[in-house]
Simulated scan of single mutants.
Amino acid sequence: MELILTIMIGLIGGIAVGTQTPIAGAMSQRIGGAASSFIVHLGGLVASGVLLISRRGENIDQWRELPWYMLCSGGLGLVLFLTVSHTIPKLGAVSGITLIIVGQLIAGLVIDYFGAFPRDIEINKLIGLALLLGGAYMIIR
């Protein structure tokens, strides 16, 4: 049951990204990439603040103990957002989201191999990635 719940949460996250991406791309076309990024991240700040308050602050007081790169990870959200605002209008939602997903999977493989909890890269994962790259090529061309 826990696995099914985890899979459902992952799918919900994917649906959220897949829904936000074309909306953000359209907003970027109207008001610019930096302006729309600011609006999206401000909305995320408000939503995160409400969630944090509802969870009684969790362990927010320990933020000073985090490594610098964790404190800078919000910049990656900006990179994602600006990527979306560039690719979606030029390639369409399906192609733009495909590129983002393939990029996430490549990053996941690298993180799995070199990250804090290293895992061997199995041949079936490499074959799956190759198939995804082939599928991405077919979608984009």
Rank of each mutant, 00 (worst) to 15 (best):
M1R: 12
I4P: 05
T6R: 11
I7L: 15
I7G: 12
I7Y: 12
I7Q: 12
I9H: 06
G10N: 04
G10E: 05
L11V: 13
I12C: 11
G13S: 07
V17N: 04
V17R: 01
V17L: 12
G18E: 01
Q20W: 08
T21G: 00
A24G: 10
G25W: 04
M27A: 14
S28G: 15
R30L: 05
I31D: 01
A34I: 15
A35C: 02
A35N: 11
S37C: 08
I39R: 09
I39P: 02
L42T: 11
G44P: 06
V46S: 09
A47I: 11
S48L: 14
G49E: 00
G49A: 06
L51K: 09
L52G: 04
S54E: 09
R55H: 12
E58H: 10
N59R: 02
N59D: 14
I60E: 05
I60Y: 11
W63L: 12
R64M: 14
L66E: 13
L66I: 06
P67Y: 08
M70N: 07
M70F: 13
C72K: 05
C72A: 15
G75E: 05
G75H: 04
L78G: 08
L78D: 00
L78Q: 03
V79Q: 04
F81Q: 07
L82Y: 11
S85K: 05
T87Y: 00
T87C: 02
I88Y: 02
L91P: 07
L91K: 00
I100T: 13
I100V: 13
V102I: 15
Q104A: 10
Q104L: 08
L105M: 13
G108V: 02
L109D: 00
V110N: 05
Y113T: 08
F114H: 14
G115T: 01
G115H: 01
F117S: 10
P118E: 00
R119K: 15
R119Q: 14
D120P: 06
D120F: 10
E122F: 08
N124A: 08
K125Y: 10
K125Q: 14
K125P: 04
G128N: 03
G128P: 03
L129P: 08
A130K: 07
L131R: 11
L132I: 12
L132W: 09
G134N: 09
G135Y: 07
A136G: 13
Y137E: 03
R141A: 11
R141H: 13
R141W: 09
